[in-house]
Simulated assay, not measured.
Amino acid sequence: MTTDTPIAHRKTGALPALIALCLGLGLMSGVATQNAEASQPMTSTQPAAQTLSARQQAIPLIAAFMATSDMPRLNAALNQGLDAGLTVSETKEILVQLYAYVGFPRSLNALNELMTVVQARKQRGIQDAPGREPSRAIATGEALLAAGTANQTRISGGPVKGPVFDFAPVINPFLQTHLFGDIFERDNLDWQSRELATVGALAATPGVESQLRSHMRASLRVGLSVEQLRQVIEVLAEHGDEQSAKRASTALTQALAASGG
Rank of each mutant, 00 (worst) to 15 (best):
L256E: 05
D187C: 03
Y99W: 11
A255T: 10
T2A: 12
L21N: 13
V199E: 02
I62H: 02
E195M: 10
A203D: 06
A197N: 03
D4M: 02
I138L: 10
T5H: 08
M216H: 07
A48P: 13
E93V: 01
T149W: 05
I155W: 01
T2W: 01
Q152C: 06
E209S: 14
A14H: 11
T87P: 09
L189I: 11
P159G: 02
A76R: 14
V222K: 05
L82Q: 08
H178G: 04
G131Y: 12
R194S: 05
R194V: 02
E90D: 08
A137K: 13
S69N: 15
S244W: 02
S156G: 12
T33G: 13
T205R: 09
T45V: 13
I138W: 00
A245G: 15
K92P: 01
A168C: 07
I138D: 01
L256F: 08
K161H: 14
P105E: 05
T198K: 03
T43G: 04
V232M: 03
S193N: 14
A147L: 10
D83T: 09
A146I: 04
E93N: 02
Q57A: 15
A120N: 15
V170A: 14
V199F: 05
P60A: 06
G158C: 11
A139R: 07
A137T: 14
L86A: 04
D83V: 01
N75H: 15
S210K: 12
G85V: 01
I183K: 07
Q97N: 13
F165H: 07
A248F: 10
G162F: 10
R213Y: 06
V96D: 03
P159H: 09
L202R: 01
P173A: 04
L25V: 08
M28E: 13
P72S: 11
S69M: 11
L189H: 03
T2K: 02
R55K: 13
